[in-house]
Computed example of a mutant assay.
Amino acid sequence: MSDQHWRQQAACAGMDPRAFFSIGHHARAQVNAARRVCATCPVRQQCADFAIGVGEANGVWGGMSQKQLRERRRRFTSRAKTSTRAAA
């Protein structure tokens, strides 16, 4: 599935992207609202994989909060380093 194709299939297609980037006093409510949209998304996994692949550090992607993205990216990076060492 091409990069543009999965984005067109996303539950958030056409929504204001700011809805997925929380700020201020209502950040938790914004994150929860964004995650509810993601929960209905047919391309949630592609979105998460994209965000991790490009090193996205902000916003809700694939239903994951910024903290969850960082944790998953660390695991992904750690696995990649282990795979590289094993291949050498």
Rank of each mutant, 00 (worst) to 15 (best):
M1T: 05
M64E: 10
T40S: 15
F20I: 04
R72F: 09
H25F: 08
W61V: 04
G55W: 06
R74S: 09
M1G: 06
Q8I: 01
C38G: 01
F21A: 04
H25N: 11
R44I: 12
A27C: 07
R79Y: 06
M15Y: 05
I23S: 12
R44V: 11
C12A: 02
R70Q: 10
Q68V: 08
P17A: 06
T40W: 08
S83M: 13
A10Y: 00
A80C: 06
Q8D: 11
A29R: 12
K67C: 05
R73Q: 14
Q68A: 15
G59K: 14
T82A: 15
C38W: 01
R35N: 06
V54T: 14
S2K: 13
C41E: 00
Q8E: 11
T82K: 14
V37P: 01
I52Q: 12
S22M: 06
W61N: 04
V37D: 00
A48K: 08
D49H: 12
A19Y: 03
S78T: 10
F20K: 04
E56I: 05
N58Y: 15
R18W: 09
R75Q: 12
F20Q: 04
Q8F: 04
L69F: 11
F21H: 07
G14C: 00
A27V: 07
I23Q: 10
A48P: 03
H25V: 13
V60F: 08
T77R: 15
Q66W: 08
G14Y: 01
H26L: 12
C41L: 02
G62W: 00
V37S: 00
Q68N: 06
Q68L: 09
R79Q: 11
E71K: 14
V31L: 05
A39M: 05
R18E: 14
S65Y: 07
G59M: 14
E56F: 08
N58P: 03
A11R: 01
A48T: 03
Q9V: 01
M64N: 07
R79S: 10
S22C: 07
P42Y: 01
S83D: 12
D3N: 11
Q45C: 05
W61K: 05
V37F: 02
G55P: 08
N58E: 15
C12K: 02
R70T: 10
R36W: 06
T77A: 14
I52Y: 10
G63T: 01
A39L: 03
I52W: 11
H5S: 11
A80K: 13
P17E: 04
G55K: 07
G53V: 11
V54P: 04
S22A: 15
G14A: 00
M1K: 08
F20W: 09
M1V: 12
E71M: 14
A34C: 09
V43E: 00
F20V: 04
A88V: 10
Q46V: 01
R73S: 12
S65M: 08
Q66C: 09
Q30D: 09
A39K: 03
G59L: 14
C47T: 02
T82D: 10
R74G: 02
Q66P: 12
Q30F: 04
R70P: 00
M64K: 15
A34Y: 03
A34E: 05
M64L: 15
F50R: 03
A48D: 04
V31T: 11
D16N: 15
A13S: 07
